[in-house]
């Protein structure tokens, strides 16, 4: 992998030229003392020293309300697919969120290829950043393998702690992206230091179970009392899903323009923890209880998607712990409960 180095000042100058160009550039900014992804209107607003953002960058690849078809109302022959048209870059994606994008890539391309996702993805340059601060509840090292972020990233930044970044160039797109910057080849010393700096910031939380052991650990625990205990406190509000970088369940929604001359079919975010998620025709709900829904969510995070895609449906960002009002959604807490109850039964 080609390594470059660039001073912080030069990087900001480079981002400044991007922001004033045709590309939509997204990055982390500070809002009222908290961090959030936003469209950058000035390089000066870009923060690469964030601990964790409220929402993940998935919204730029899988928007909350994304048109997939346009049509004349009532005329099936008029249906035409709608695809993203603008090129975009996201600068400052933590390894966990980058691994989440790798999982989304797989989810939307395995078996049946979703050209709407792929078109937007193909127009996106992804630049990662290794964390410079611990996340309050981060346990990413427990949930992803170090190589998985590189399945999605075009380049990764490493803060060298001396007003410079090392840039790992991952793809040709990443190379092309930084070719207009002032980055120069990294020195041998710089390369060695960069490797150390990647792991300088440690996780705050460590999962007690190895990722590969999670599916068998969860086998047979579908009727464990922990689901009822936590379900009794669940508001079924969907906050855990909204902030999650990997959740990608969706609904379809038709909307007409007020002129009634044309309409759009949207793909909209949905959440398996919401009460009507599994309701069928005639009103039969196959997951009536909050306990069943939060069990399903955790099994998707730690078992189903791992088995289906080979990548975990949780990347250990800890956002769900921050977002969940009754604090019942955090996978390490649930796993601890399952472990404790297991020990108790013995």
């Amino acid at each position: 992998m080609e390594l470059l180095q660039i001073s912080k000042k030069e990087l900001l100058e480079f981002v400044g030229t991007l922001v004033s160009g045709p590309l939509d550039v997204f990055g982390v900014v500070a809002h009222d003392g908290r961090f959030a992804y936003d469209k950058l209107d000035s390089a000066a607003n870009l923060r690469l020293d964030f601990d964790e953002t409220l929402y993940s960058p998935k919204q730029y690849l899988f928007p909350p309300k994304d048109p997939v078809l346009s049509y004349t109302p009532g005329d099936a022959a008029s249906c035409a697919p709608v695809y993203a048209e603008k090129d975009q870059a996201i600068i400052g994606v933590h390894p966990g969120d980058m691994a989440a994008i790798a999982m989304l890539d797989k989810a939307f391309t395995e078996n049946k290829i979703d050209a709407h996702y792929c078109t937007r993805r193909e127009k996106t340059t992804l630049v990662g950043i290794y964390p410079t601060k611990p996340g309050k509840y981060r346990f990413t090292s427990s949930m992803i393998k170090p190589e998985e972020p590189y399945l999605a990233a075009d380049a990764f930044l490493i803060d060298m702690g001396d007003d410079s970044y090392t840039i790992e160039i991952v793809t040709d797109r990443g190379k092309e992206f930084f070719s207009a910057s002032a980055a120069k080849p990294a020195t041998a010393d710089g390369k060695a230091k960069a490797e150390k700096m990647k792991t300088a910031v440690k996780d705050t939380v460590t999962l007690k179970i190895k990722r590969e052991d999670l599916p068998p650990f969860l086998d047979g625990k579908e009727r464990h009392p922990v689901w009822e205990t936590r379900g009794a406190k669940c508001f079924s509000c969907g906050s855990c899903v909204t902030v999650c970088p990997t959740c990608y369940c969706f609904d379809m929604l038709d909307e007409l323009d007020l002129s009634f001359d044309y309409g759009l079919r949207f793909r909209t975010w949905d959440a398996c923890v919401l009460e009507p998620f599994a309701v069928c025709a005639g009103g039969h709900n196959f997951r009536t209880k909050a306990a069943d829904r939060i069990r399903h969510r955790l099994y998707r995070k730690q078992k189903y998607l791992l088995e289906k895609l080979g990548l975990a449906g949780c990347v250990g960002c800890g956002r769900c712990k921050t977002a969940c009002v009754p604090d019942i959604a955090f996978p390490p807490d649930i796993d601890d409960d399952l472990l404790r109850k297991e020990a108790h039964h013995v």
């Binding site: 990608y248 369940c249 969706f250 379809m252 189903y304």
Partner: peptide
């Protein structure tokens, strides 16, 4: 893709 029809995994 959408997740609505899942029975377990």
């Amino acid at each position: 893709k959408c997740g609505h029809c899942q029975i377990d995994g």
